[in-house]
Amino acid sequence: PGAVLVQSWLARVTVPPSLAALLGVRGGERTLVHHRRERGPAGQTLQHAVTYVCPRALAEEPGLAGYRRTAAVRDEDPGPLDRWLDRAAREGRVAETITMTLSHRQASAAAAGGLSVRRTLHDDAGRLLAVTDLSYPTWDRLTFHRDRAVSGFQVS
């Protein structure tokens, strides 16, 4: 197997209406977004993670001050944001909703699956810090493992 290429970049985007209420903003407001894409040896996307940082968290967190400018942030180093997200996940609460869809391609009878995961990150007071949408468009097998104790899963 060949190497996996990881691309990572930042952007300031308009919050989609589907996330506005969750992030505590009105539709049309902008926030910092971190993209992380993993590509396989043939260039196929293996995983694409899109993390929307809650504007309140961005405004309050001293370590994220460098990202507060209104100009584009694409050339900024995502390292401070990655470290903040990792620390917040260790100290706060992470919840994940896993959605799997099964569809059939028109050209063949072979089934194609899609898997998406929505991860929400909350501080220790329960306030939302970030929402990450992960997609796995070319998966054939995935294993999710958590080290922290969980109270259970709800399947719907």
Rank of each mutant, 00 (worst) to 15 (best):
P1K: 14
G2L: 14
A3T: 12
V6L: 10
V6Y: 02
V6W: 01
Q7A: 06
W9G: 01
W9F: 10
W9P: 00
A11N: 07
R12G: 03
V13R: 15
V13S: 08
V15M: 10
P16H: 08
P16W: 10
P17L: 11
S18H: 13
L23A: 01
L23Q: 01
G24N: 06
G24T: 07
G24F: 06
G24W: 09
V25N: 06
G27E: 15
G28W: 08
T31W: 01
L32W: 04
V33I: 07
H34S: 05
R36F: 00
R36G: 00
R39H: 10
P41H: 13
P41L: 09
G43V: 05
G43D: 13
T45F: 03
T45W: 12
L46Y: 05
H48S: 08
H48M: 10
P55S: 05
E60F: 03
E61K: 08
E61H: 09
P62D: 13
G63Q: 14
L64F: 12
L64G: 02
A65G: 04
R68A: 06
A72V: 05
A72H: 12
V73T: 10
R74F: 09
G79W: 04
P80V: 05
P80Q: 07
P80K: 07
L81F: 14
W84R: 04
L85T: 02
L85D: 06
R87T: 06
A89F: 04
A89I: 00
R93G: 00
R93M: 03
A95V: 12
A95L: 15
T97L: 15
T97Q: 15
T99L: 15
T99R: 15
T101G: 09
L102W: 11
H104N: 11
R105H: 11
R105Q: 13
R105A: 13
R105C: 05
Q106D: 09
A107K: 11
A107N: 11
S108Q: 10
S108C: 09
A109S: 09
A109G: 13
A110K: 10
A110R: 13
A111G: 04
A112E: 11
A112F: 01
A112I: 05
G113T: 02
G114A: 15
L115V: 06
R119E: 13
T120I: 01
T120S: 12
L121W: 02
H122C: 05
D123I: 03
D124Q: 09
D124Y: 04
A125I: 03
A125W: 07
G126Q: 09
R127A: 09
R127P: 00
L129H: 01
V131K: 01
T132M: 14
L134S: 02
S135L: 03
Y136E: 01
P137T: 12
W139C: 00
W139E: 03
D140G: 06
R141W: 12
F144S: 01
D147I: 00
D147W: 08
A149I: 02
A149C: 02
V150I: 12
G152K: 04
F153N: 02
Q154F: 07
V155N: 14
V155D: 15
S156Q: 09
